[in-house]
Computed example of a mutant assay.
Amino acid sequence: MIASMVMCKPAQVRQPLNNMPSANSSGGQMLNLTNLNLPCQKEKVVLVMGATGAGKTRLSIDLATYFPAEIINSDKMQVYEGLDIVTNKITKEEQRGVPHHLLGTQNPNSEFTAADFCDMTTLAVESITGRGQLPIIVGGSNSYIEALIDDDDYKFRSRYDCCCLWVDVSMPVLHPYIDERVDQMFNNGMLNELRSFYNPNGDYSRGIRKAIGVPEFDQYFRSEPFRDEETRIKLLQQAIREVKENTSKLAIKQLRKIHTLRNVKRWKIHHLDATPVFRKKGKDANETWKELVAEPSVRIVAEFLYNVNTANVGATLRLPTLATAIATATC
């Protein structure tokens, strides 16, 4: 068996995060792991969880920047082809060259079930680990993740060790951000994207039409040809308001599920509070994200992958140096 994610062979490290010091410029202490005993055990999988808008996608790309990784989407609406703005799919530019799986691959009129997700994700994980890469599963459909990890016969757990990261933002702070994000989606062309997709006979209980943003605009498109401008504007504002409300309700539902997995099912989930990030803007927000979310996550994953206590390395160690040292270590 390929013990891929304990790095029993040299692996290429992606370029470090923007504005982060490189291994050559950090001036930090180089961690020499070549003589450490890194046991080859189960293969490793990282899961990134959180409510919609909290920063799951951003963290997954950050981690894939530090470690040789590929990302598996676990958002049940983003698996479908089309409606990229409505479902808030990560763009090619934002992917930064990191391979993505189960992203915009399914027929939008088909029904992609939890069982389908488990089957296809298992195959993707096998393929990724077979290439010596780290699978990072990221998305907001926590019921799908639960079905994968806690399958009836625990096949997945018997084969893989999982590290769960939870990017959390307090709801009073997240809700206004969700509203802003919906407004930005509208400014980016959501209405035209929905108009070209609209079908008066569409089934809102199946496929991508279940996505928040699709049924909410049904009344607007259905009435658009027959209403005056003032009425159309009111219907449009109502649809946008419903999208915001339903997205906030989804965030609450996602948060409750994470609490259930952590407190009832006793999943070990690492909590990362990103709330202060959302209270800042621009460079200050990016620095706070790096300090409170990105850097702690890299340390958690490094310790998970390589059984190394990074706290003992020294305060001067820079994370790109850490990632470089670890990823080039051999068993």
Rank of each mutant, 00 (worst) to 15 (best):
S223Q: 13
T288Q: 08
P215N: 07
L261A: 02
F197A: 08
R227T: 13
K253S: 02
Q238P: 03
H271E: 14
T260L: 09
H271Q: 14
N201D: 08
A211N: 06
S196E: 13
W267E: 03
R266C: 10
S248V: 06
E229I: 15
Q254S: 01
E287D: 15
P276H: 12
P200M: 12
E224I: 02
P225N: 11
R241A: 10
L250I: 09
E230V: 14
F197D: 04
K281H: 04
E230G: 08
I252F: 00
V277E: 03
Q254W: 01
H270Y: 13
F221S: 14
K283G: 03
N201I: 04
Y220M: 09
R262D: 10
L235C: 11
K268Q: 15
W289P: 00
V243Y: 04
G202W: 05
G213S: 12
K281S: 02
W267K: 06
W267M: 09
R256G: 00
N201E: 08
K210I: 05
L272M: 05
I208D: 03
Q219T: 09
I258A: 00
L272W: 03
Q237F: 05
D273N: 15
L250A: 12
A285G: 02
P215R: 04
A239W: 04
R232A: 15
D218W: 03
R209P: 02
F221P: 11
N263K: 05
A251I: 11
R227H: 09
R279Q: 14
I258R: 00
R241N: 08
T288L: 06
P225F: 08
V243S: 04
E245Y: 13
K244H: 07
D218K: 10
L261S: 02
Y204F: 13
G207H: 10
K257G: 01
E287A: 11
T288D: 06
V243A: 08
A251L: 10
Y198S: 14
F217I: 08
T260D: 12
T275C: 06
Q237N: 15
T288H: 02
T260I: 09
F197L: 06
A251P: 05
W267F: 13
L261H: 01
R262S: 12
F217K: 07
S248T: 07
L235A: 11
I240L: 13
G202S: 11
L250P: 05
W289H: 07
F197E: 04
E287F: 05
R222F: 10
E224M: 07
N199D: 15
Y198E: 11
P276G: 09
E229F: 15
G213V: 05
I269E: 11
R195C: 06
G282Q: 00
R266V: 06
G207D: 08
R262K: 15
N201F: 06
L235M: 15
S223M: 12
L235S: 12
T247E: 05
N263V: 01
L255G: 00
P225Y: 08
A211L: 10
L250C: 12
R209H: 06
R209S: 03
N201S: 11
F217R: 06
I212E: 07
D284W: 00
